[in-house]
Design a protein around this nucleic acid. Sequence first.
RNA 1: GCAUCGGUGGCGAAGUGGCUAACGCGCAGGUCUGCAAAACCUGUAUACGCGGGUUCGAUCCCCGCCCGGUGCUCCA
Length: 389
Amino acid sequence: MRVERPEIIARATEHIPRMVALIQKLAEGGAAYQTEDGSWYFRLAAFPAYGKLSKKDLSGMQDGARVDLDEYEKDSARDFALWKAAKPGETFWETPIGRGRPGWHIECSAMAMEYLGDSFDLHAGGEDLMFPHHENEIAQSETATHKPFARHWMHVRFLLVDGRKMSKSEGNFFTLRDLLLKGYKASAIRLALVSVPYRHQLNFTFDGLAEATNAIDRLRTFHLRLTQGNFAAGSNPALQAAAQTAQSDYLAALSNDLNTAEARAPIFDLIRASNTAIDQGQLFRDDRDAILCVLASFDAVFDVIEDRDAEPTHRALEWAAQSGRLNEVAPELLARQALTDEAIDALVAERTAAKKHRNFSRADQIRNDLAQQGIVLEDSKDGVRWKRK
RNA sequence: GCAUCGGUGGCGAAGUGGCUAACGCGCAGGUCUGCAAAACCUGUAUACGCGGGUUCGAUCCCCGCCCGGUGCUCCA
């Protein structure tokens, strides 16, 4: 899917001392306490701002009668674990605060502070983590440092599939690999997923995928038209201005809480303006260069215009071959894979020759055959362009 | 039940207290083309869930209702 690798992949097991230090600091301030079994808990009463992220008001949630019996040792039912004492048979670390393993939340605080400092700009996560995990991270971090933890939180909403939660029992569960083997391009999946801003819920459907596929077609066709066309030297002031507007509107949309839906609009606006100009012979070399720059800037984030779809599909097919599941692969996909670029070029050349001799039936036959295999031909002043559907 | 997010044209989806409510996709007609494709133009008749309220004015603010998502126990 061409998602970038993080610069740092931190492992909790490699940061135990850091976590222990954090717990000790909390204990010194009276915000952490140890129970009889050796576990450490965070005292929620030590952090009055608790609940500020998920806007929960805990004042109405008194420690009730339904507290589990095994939690009797805690001062308050809502206090959460910082460190869990080792139980027989479990792996554990031998530390100054005892034998055991870290609680869920402390590892995130410790590692975030290790690499980003006590305060940092962005903390992201799924919407399900807002409460209690991120709330607990804030509580333990800010109590320890007396500084704001993350300045901004980005919570990604879960996607729906066909209007429902994706789950195996609903029968609407599939992996990226499944989609690739059905013949969908990686870029289409990518564009479909960002067609709704991260903050909004995305309903993932096959119609949506088909739509994204078509949108990518438009982007790529236009890109080809620019890179393969011949343009006269010079520039068109109106297009230069349009390119600049598109670029700044695009960046403004992304700056606006990563509004990916809004960010697409100026790019498509520019495409229409440019196509119109090309049709009228009013697009020149300098304009082409300026517009290609805008497209590159779009692709630096969205990464769908340049066609890199072959590799993920190949990998999926290899997997299918190795696990004996080629029979589950969409037949069109297999047919498409059979054609090499060279073979296509040869057929295109044969068709051009046939056209020259006004043998249109042979020319059309070649075009139709290729279309059957997912190759689309476009005649233009500057020669024949072809693309894989 | 409580909390929270959302319900915009045929579909997806931005956005705004008042100018013709972006953009994409689809469909129909037209221009171009040997025919197509691509591209462009035009259209898709009254698109802002329902009912109140605030306001000179609400799709946007407030209240209620309906529908959908998620959280509200543990574990990571």
